[in-house]
Design a protein around this nucleic acid. Structure first.
Lengths: 244, 244
DNA sequence: CGCTGTATTGACCTCCTTCAAATGCGGTGG
DNA sequence: CCACCGCATTTGAAGGAGGTCAATACAGCG
């Protein structure tokens, strides 16, 4: 059973060769741990290395004048933090950890080498980038169209599925180490209102959230509540011949 | 003076060779006109061709269960509608015109051929895609963090600049053929509230909006009002040796 | 000159914010 | 084991931004 979250995720991109998988594993050996609430790379910096999350939760955020923080993406194991900005000269946002994390930093040269010489891997990485953008679009819709409780529900549906893909969640539950104040920064709500909406979701029996863990008694009901359609994640479960 | 909006925009990507420009012009000869409020490609379809806007305004939207429409992007001349989704098998959103448009459809084969054989052009197209994503991120922040009047102001600042880049706006004004109900679908507001906020912006002297045209008497003041920082567009004016 | 789509107005209601204080809880040191 | 600290969560009351519904004004167009 594959434990590398990136390899697991990229199965959904169309599959890698055994050589590709070895390569990814090798690159991931150079990991390091990072404390909670550390910036990995800041707005304005020139990106030198690409960051990959192997364990823990990270995020992408922008600071507003006025001190407000808006979180534009949550990054879970298997997610690249900044694969896409390679070409742009300066970061227009910051990457930070939300929990203690295990991170791999990969030099741009290595990435280019991988892409040059390993076409299936290159294709898979492009796919991963496209999925990131699809998630971003769905988040935009989430903010624009849904009520606060639905936004939270939608987020939980998404994270549950994304963690299932990398083998960190089971059918009905996953770790949820994100603070309420972080949730507030994701949805453009106040901490207070997030708290009240969480209570409402709990009272409705849609979620059980405690001890940094989320349980969803009835996934279909939660999905129906917020209009979650998993298609945008482009991760419809497929038979994975390598896991048998 | 270059009139092709795509070529004008791509100057900011680092410049094209004269051969690249000829190629782009040739591809753009196959344009066609499309009525207002027509879908160019719908959610669920397999994308065959890539669409490029040469004239008019288009948009990217998702329909919600309940019939609400959320507009996730506004596409102006020089913008590709779906360059990024080439790899994903199905559209997870719809592309439609907001005004009568001139559109070029480019086959995937042509795009691949261009990218294979014209490295500077390939680089420029990748850059354009990254900028599209940066805009998407800024829109997310716009919805999450700003009040309704600031959202509108921010949108006007962005469109003014993007139209200046392709030579369709002057220092203080640009066409603004978008209906108030479309603006509502961009910001997740109601038509009624958009109307009131527009009046407020007018009364504050921040904008003059009439006859489908926007005038901004004091661009700096409007930018300050909504916290607009043009960096995310990665289009800081540069000397363009070909326009002299 | 009437028709259709768009813009505008008013009254009322709800969701979410603001500000402030209280409660719970996981560690750490005595 | 208990007292204490810092952080996260929870609660309450009151105000404001934005929604809803329905009517009216207006503009372009055949």
């Amino acid at each position: 059973m594959e434990t590398n979250p990136l390899i697991r995720k990229l199965q959904y991109a169309g599959g890698l060769t055994e050589a590709d998988r070895c390569l990814v594993r090798r690159v991931c050996e150079a990991m390091r741990t990072v404390e909670r609430r550390e910036d990995l790379i800041q707005q304005g910096e020139r990106p030198e290395n690409v960051h990959l999350v192997l364990d823990g939760f990270a995020c992408r955020y922008k600071m507003m004048e006025g001190g407000n923080r808006h979180i534009m993406a949550v990054l879970v194991p298997g997610d690249f933090c900044d694969l896409h900005v390679a070409l742009l000269s300066r970061m227009d946002h910051t990457i930070a950890t939300l929990t203690p994390c295990t991170i791999v930093e990969i030099s741009r040269a290595t990435i280019l080498e991988l892409i040059e010489n390993h076409p299936r891997l290159a294709c898979a990485l492009r796919w991963a980038t496209l999925v990131d953008v699809a998630v971003l679009r769905e988040w935009l819709v989430n903010l624009g169209q849904r009520s606060a409780d639905q936004r939270l529900a939608h987020f939980f549906c998404e994270i549950l599925l994304r963690l299932q893909v990398v083998g960190l969640a089971n059918e009905n539950g996953c770790p949820m180490p994100i603070r309420q104040s972080d949730l507030a920064d994701i949805f453009g709500l106040t901490e207070v209102h997030v708290n009240r909406m969480l209570q409402q979701l709990r009272e409705a029996g849609l979620i059980v959230l405690r001890q940094r863990r989320l349980e969803v008694p009835d996934v279909e009901r939660l999905r129906a509540f917020c209009g979650f359609n998993p298609d945008y994640l482009h991760m419809t479960p497929r038979v994975d011949e390598h896991d048998i």
